[in-house]
């Protein structure tokens, strides 16, 4: 029996679900569907999170959510679609204001201002801002389940790699900073002076705490599930293999693969099937068998190709049903 219901029955303590994969393969749809199911059918308080600049959660729920903060779209179902660019701009402004306040300045030194502005151009800035927003939301602990629609940077797993890099980095600077402070303390004692509190170290510890808590949660396979969303196509298979490799390197357990856009088997029995579509389905069979062979039991859910776009709560409910309990006629093996 295929379907996420089985997975959640096996792992009742899951708090975070991440859908990763390339853009346009159904990540956002899967996220929305799972969130809907958990909120409406199981009565959990769910937060569905997306940063997709194409604003697809807005499309799915047919409401403008982009950059609007947390919005309740159905009972217990909360949705947030981060506008990372706006968040970065606000963050930069906050930093600038802080400098002005701290030193009682009228205006920022030119060099500092230029430096702050230049950071927006960094692609990594976008990732970190997203990551930070996620960490903040999870840290709040207000929801029973967090569903993340990972932005299409790489495979989304990069986020976890970054968590590790950042954590190691903060470890290093904290250490360097502590050692530096120790020598400062030495100099200060020798001079008979008093030690002053070190704001930087405090700030660093906070960042670090946030990161480690989040990373620990993300790498705990009892609490966090990662699903790769893919379609039965050659490129997607290759991508998913690569992603699996990355997961292994990061010591993260990949919970499963969600295969999307599958044509039902009995379609082939239809006599009036256009030749083009028949060819396509035959191709798909080949790919599905390959998926079966390569990912085996990892295949967690099968979602059919729908006759219309998955939009609106009604349609989402349908997708949710398929996601939780996959249709038998999609099993090609």
């Amino acid at each position: 029996m295929v379907g996420l219901a089985e997975f959640f029955a096996r792992k009742p303590d899951i708090e975070v679900v991440v859908f990763a994969g390339k853009g346009g393969l159904g990540k956002t749809t899967s996220s929305a569907a799972l969130s809907y199911h958990m909120a409406v059918n199981e009565g959990k308080k769910v937060l569905c999170f997306s940063t997709d600049p194409q604003a697809s959660l807005s499309d799915i729920f047919e409401r403008d959510l982009f950059g609007k903060g947390v919005v309740e779209v159905a009972p217990n179902l909360y949705v947030v679609e981060i506008d990372a660019d706006k968040k970065i701009a606000e963050y930069q402004q906050e930093i600038k204001q802080k400098i002005l306040d701290m030193y009682g300045l009228e205006e920022l030194p030119k060099e500092i201002e230029e430096y702050i502005d230049s950071t927006s151009a960094e692609p990594a800035m976008y990732e970190s801002a997203t990551y930070d927003a996620m960490a903040d939301l999870v840290a709040s602990g207000e929801y029973d389940l967090y569903v993340f629609d990972m932005p299409p940077f790489g495979h989304g797993v990069r986020m976890v790699a970054m968590a590790e890099i950042l954590s190691a980095w903060v470890d290093k600077i904290t250490e360097a900073r502590k050692e530096a402070a120790e020598y400062e303390a030495v100099a200060a004692t020798l001079k008979g002076g008093m030690q002053t509190e070190d704001m930087v170290l405090k700030e660093l510890e906070e960042i670090r705490k946030k990161m480690t808590t989040f990373t620990e949660l993300m790498t705990n396979s009892e609490k966090t599930a990662f699903f790769m969303v893919m379609v039965p196509e050659k490129m997607a298979i290759l991508d998913t293999e690569r992603a699996l490799e990355m997961f292994r390197e990061l010591n993260i357990e990949m919970s499963g693969v969600v295969v999307n856009q599958i044509y039902p088997r009995d379609l082939l029995n239809k006599p009036d099937l256009p030749e083009l579509l028949r060819k396509k389905i035959e191709m798909q069979e080949k790919h599905l068998l390959e998926i079966r062979e390569k990912f085996g039991d990892l295949v967690a859910a099968l979602i059919p190709m729908y006759d219309r776009e998955p939009k609106g709560l009604e349609m989402i409910a349908k997708v949710a049903e398929d996601l939780m309990h996959s249709r038998r006629d999609l099993l090609w093996w």
Partner: peptide, 8 residues
Amino acid sequence: LYKYKANI
């Protein structure tokens, strides 16, 4: 001096 910050 350094660990216990005793008076110099």
